[in-house]
Design a protein around this nucleic acid. Sequence first.
DNA 1: TTGAAAGCGTTACCAG
DNA 2: CTGGTAACGCTTTCAA
Lengths: 333, 333
Amino acid sequence: MKRKPTLNDVAALAGVSNATVSNAINGTKHVGDDVRAKIDQAIAALDYIPNSLAKSLKMNESRLIGLMIWDILNPGFPPIVRGIEDTLRKNGFNVLLCNTDSDPVKELQYLKVLLGRQVDGLVVALAGPDVSHFLALNIPVVFFNRIPECTDCNVVTTDNAQGAYLATEHLLRHGYRRIAIVAGVQYISVGRERFRGYRKALEDGGRAFDERFVRVGPFTVEGGYQAMKELMEQDQPPDAVFTSNNILTLGALRYLRETGYRIPQDIAVVSYDDPDWATLLDPPLTCVDAQNYQMGISTGELLLERVQEKTAAKPKRVVLPLSLTVRRSCGCP
Amino acid sequence: MKRKPTLNDVAALAGVSNATVSNAINGTKHVGDDVRAKIDQAIAALDYIPNSLAKSLKMNESRLIGLMIWDILNPGFPPIVRGIEDTLRKNGFNVLLCNTDSDPVKELQYLKVLLGRQVDGLVVALAGPDVSHFLALNIPVVFFNRIPECTDCNVVTTDNAQGAYLATEHLLRHGYRRIAIVAGVQYISVGRERFRGYRKALEDGGRAFDERFVRVGPFTVEGGYQAMKELMEQDQPPDAVFTSNNILTLGALRYLRETGYRIPQDIAVVSYDDPDWATLLDPPLTCVDAQNYQMGISTGELLLERVQEKTAAKPKRVVLPLSLTVRRSCGCP
DNA sequence: TTGAAAGCGTTACCAG
DNA sequence: CTGGTAACGCTTTCAA
């Protein structure tokens, strides 16, 4: 196992100086055609690959981005991650994948590691409500999915309230009178916003808001199952439900299946997030399309913008439009 | 935006040499308690975070691992990726995520980038049948999911043939006589192995193998849909089907749903891979549990082993045992 | 157009 | 136990 060839080895073989080789490779300066040929030859002969570590150290830029998400197993993340990786790769950046499990301690540990690695920027789905450690960094950060309160943060998000509004409104149009929500925990922006949209749609539709039709729980399958169970075991169960996240939907549907409720006859369902399997169910699931892949693209683009500009620009907030994918679980024919 | 503090800044503030600070931080040598206290104080005062780039350059180890998969959107990958990230993180390694889209060109490009970044090792689900560029590397490589032919490669896999055998045998026990397979392309080990297991089970069960019940296609939803369609549009359609991968299953089920076939009355289904939504279907889906998370763990562990030993050990092949998760799509009550 | 040499932030050798 | 200093592989002035 021999030592890897370096720039100096190439220079020696080509009979020129390392500076010239560097300039030739990076196009920093013009080098003569004959010299260039010798260099190319030497590079090929040695199978030389530049050491980006050394380059990064010298240039003070790593072209490395830290990607912090809760958990890649969470089905909303893969499309986002893919969108981010796609745009960053095209621009010569690589992605360090970090699962925080929504644990602020893990998040902070990972943050230290990433800073140590001199990442040029961060894209993060916050683990907890606390953003403070991200605020004073001297590299750009873009938040997505779970975003902070702060007004001057770079953020890409969808209009979660609008999505929930769309779903609830559609259910109202069908004439359901007891529309429930399986909501996510309210200390997360996504949970809060979607609940707000649900409530607003109810009010705009002239329906009284009823606490009995609200269950708030953690974003887990078990949480969704439990919430749905409580909802249905009441004296007056709901006739429709808006499940406000894909994981919650999974749990809620699991309960409805097991207990034999028919959709939409016994209870209509509209879900947030549009998973692969939505069309597999009987009836196929009506969903708010959360635009996850697009969210990844936009997140990547915003970060690139921030990384590449020399002077820090005003933080930006991009909000993606949403739409309802109507299938049959809502009662549509 | 001021310059980041360095080891030398810490040393200056503490009034000692950089060598001592380095030793204090890494525990390389023993340092006096008073000196140590001053150093800790200086580190805290400056918010010093060591620059891993410089460290890596000097030590000739990056503690960075390249993770090459086809596509994180492919539902089998998140659990594997999570398993890998979990074990590597615990050991102080970080993961660079690379989606190759099964494109050998992209794979090779990414490989160059990763080598340039001085990764300490690679975990890869091969993009194509060609492994040659991975063979001569002087860093350890562990293959998983789609593995190469070569006998002296580090590999972690499941016994795909056994999994397919399990599925087919179970269908045979139910008394189905025309058992079809939606198989994956045969130039991929996984596709080949699963087909082999299917065929073996048929033979062991005394059933003649029948070409008409075999459809081979790309691992895509569309591929599964098309295969299922062709299978069912024959004069003598199958009475049971083994869909040999989660994506193919998605497509095949989509077709069966759309055309109104009842499962298992019209056709029984057993699938490979056990997705979240398997219990949501009506009837719930019987699956071969592919052990993806465990596969990730084992892959990470094997790589660590290889990275941490100084002298290259004999390549290892780990094969994970498989089991059938019986639900109702196979005809079980 | 090319080259010599300094320096990025570490580690590690060798002296004291 | 502590410190001076060379070196890791690259980029970048400054001179030639």
